[in-house]
């Protein structure tokens, strides 16, 4: 088989496989820098500021909070991290689970009590906490100390804020590969890019879903629960896992002798009139 024939067969196979999704790079990306209304470049204000390499908590020092507006016109606050009462970091904030572990790691990075004394902070004062990477990560691992308008890769190269996903990909390699293939994160618009005549398909960048300084998703209040169809009277609870609903249906038919009782927690066996089995 000659190369020409091979090419024709290959082209035929590709054609027969239907429309393709197109390359990731064809998806237009929104510029992060354009979203930071009036605050970029950072060097306008920070050029003469000496870099402080000492670990510390962050506090809002801009005159007005940093905001950005998405394509739908919604305004979002640029957050430096998770806003917490500094008292929580002293170990009696009542936090549990991953968040607690995260805070313990953050607290291990510096002496919180000493920091409060130095800064004149009380336990109820709020600070922004970098809840990303535990004690292993600090500002200057990602931000370029020599040029505030850029990020910094692990090998020391400068990186534009617009290309921040490559910074994330340094540590989160498998997720970055998934994102490149469109499997991780959101891609809105057309599943078939060839039919996307108006070029509306968008793939969101890492930082458009995750706050870089506190990337874990926060809890949300879910939409309204569905209305039980057959028994709107007896509402199941979270503990019952919907079992009460079924029991409510049975109640309409009269009590069943083998239904579990609330007091004993086990099924009541029917009487056998003294008969032994």
């Amino acid at each position: 088989m000659g190369p020409a024939l091979y090419f024709l067969v290959s082209a035929g196979l590709v054609f027969a496989s239907g429309p393709g999704r197109g390359e990731v790079k064809t998806v237009e990306r929104r510029s992060v820098l354009e979203d930071q209304h009036g605050y970029y470049p950072c060097s306008d204000c920070h050029a003469d500021q000496e870099t402080n390499p000492k670990p510390r908590f962050l506090q809002e020092e801009h005159d007005s909070p940093l905001e950005w507006e998405d394509e739908a016109g919604n305004t979002h606050l640029v957050e430096f991290g998770e806003k917490l009462a500094i008292g929580d970091l002293l170990g009696h904030g009542g936090q549990t689970g991953n968040r607690r572990r995260n805070l313990v790691k953050v607290g291990a990075r510096l002496d919180v009590a000493q920091y409060m004394e130095e800064q004149g902070l009380s336990e109820s004062d709020s600070v922004y906490v970098l809840t990303h990477g535990g004690a292993n990560l600090w500002c200057l691992d990602c931000h370029n100390a020599d040029d505030r308008d850029y990020l910094r890769k692990l090998n020391g190269e400068k990186l534009s804020f617009d290309d921040s996903e490559y910074l994330c990909g340094q540590c989160h390699g498998p997720i970055f590969i998934d994102w490149e293939h469109g499997v991780h994160g959101r891609t809105n618009g057309y599943w078939n890019r060839e039919l996307d005549q108006k070029d509306v398909t968008r793939r969101l960048l890492c930082i458009q879903c995750h706050i870089p300084h506190a990337p874990r998703f926060r809890g949300v209040v879910p939409e309204a629960k569905p209305v039980p169809r057959l028994d709107p009277v007896s509402e199941p609870t979270a503990e019952s896992h919907g079992h009460e609903r079924h029991r409510g249906e049975y109640d309409r038919l009269g009590p069943h002798p083998w239904v579990e009782t609330a007091s004993t927690g086990h099924a009541e066996e029917p009487a056998h009139d003294g008969e032994k089995h």
């Binding site: 999704r21 991780h184 618009g189 599943w191 879903c209």
Partner: peptide
């Protein structure tokens, strides 16, 4: 060629849809 509405709204990108015959999908 559009995505289903449930995929469009999903805030975490958990939902994926496409043509299973397309090796690049």
């Amino acid at each position: 060629g559009l995505n289903p509405a449930c995929l469009e709204i999903c805030p975490t990108g958990s939902r994926k849809f496409g043509n299973i015959l397309d090796p690049q999908s």
